[in-house]
Design a binder for these strands. Structure first.
Lengths: 186, 186
DNA sequence: TCGAGTGATGTCATTCAGTGACATCACTCA
DNA sequence: TGAGTGATGTCACTGAATGACATCACTCGA
């Protein structure tokens, strides 16, 4: 018999999601999460930097994929087209995760501390987009503006997808949002 | 003689800025800030919700002014024009505050926790813009997209202003940033 | 097969953020 | 002049987060 049950991090993630959804983020203690996962609070902090981070594991992976798509866009693509490619590439990440995304997003939206953390993840994405665009030869100021705008589109589209009663495809929603941006600034 | 020195909140703000700049946010305790301001830690928390908020007093005022400008834009103005008016209206708020803004921004940029807080302030601004646009009759989805885009412009322009070695006027920089957005999405 | 690591976890003590309850006391005003 | 009022202090407590050290199943080479 193994000394410890495997995948403590996974159990902690699930326990945290369940408790945050059940009784709210603020009224859940790390000790309770750890208990439910069968470990101690000290172990929680060995897997996650803080009480918020447990909901954001995997965001680096998403960011990595989106950045790759920006870099992989055709050379002829302008800055905004490259960013659009990055945004669209996020679609596959959410396949079959709509319900999970909805529950997770409900918890985050209800908790200022978690919203803060989500924003800094978006900022990290914007910085990564900026960097990728510069590598494509885009001027620094233009790169950051295009990146910020692209992230704004991603956020709005994601919100629309989560809220969509028709369960429309996320990629379609992203395309529509990008089109809205074009007509807005026309 | 008054029982207490007046303007405890002001002294706390200054003490916090000084200490955060001197030795960094994380290595400054609330007790130290309170000490320097001549009050107790308990009093600190009566004036500011938490250790981060002390750097963001006044942001509601800025938001209020920007929203007013959105609402005051000519009826003929489109969503993006109205948002642009809001962004430009922030200019006067920063008159004669460039050096203060630079020091403050340096502290914030160096501290993830403070960056998180700054982002949620920007989100609040975006929500307020969205609301204002809806009051102007803009469709909800378009309103939020225009608002997010406007906030992106504000952030980029503010960063440019703080970093500008020429000390250019903030309003000019904002106009230029708005122009960049137009050509980007053309 | 045995013994020296290794690594994930537990235990314990501590610092610090943040909050609730209650006391204090200069100042105000009827 | 005495009953509030309000900003502050004091105290006790919860809970997040971290460092130091112990534990022990498992691995791997001699």
């Amino acid at each position: 018999m193994a000394r410890w049950e495997p995948d403590a991090a996974g159990r902690l993630r699930e326990a945290a999601m369940a408790l945050y959804a059940e009784r709210g983020y603020e009224r859940t203690t790390v000790a309770e999460i750890a208990d439910r996962a069968g470990v101690t609070a000290r172990t929680f902090f060995r897997h996650f930097a803080d009480k918020r981070e447990v909901l954001f594991a995997g965001s680096e992976e998403l960011e990595r994929r989106m950045v790759e798509a920006v870099l992989a866009a055709p050379e002829s693509a302008g800055p905004m087209d490259a960013v659009a490619a990055g945004v669209l590439a996020s679609g596959e990440f959410f396949v079959d995760r709509r319900e999970h995304s909805r529950r997770r997003q409900a918890v985050i939206t209800a908790t200022p501390e978690l919203r803060e953390r989500e924003f800094i993840k978006m900022a990290s994405l914007a910085a990564a987009f900026t960097d990728a665009l510069r590598k494509r030869g885009v001027a620094p100021e233009i790169a950051s503006l295009a990146a910020e705008t692209g992230v704004a589109v991603f956020r709005v589209a994601f919100e629309r997808w989560v809220a969509d009663p028709q369960d429309a495809d996320i990629t379609d929603i992203m395309r529509a949002t990008l089109a809205d941006l074009s007509s807005l600034t026309a």
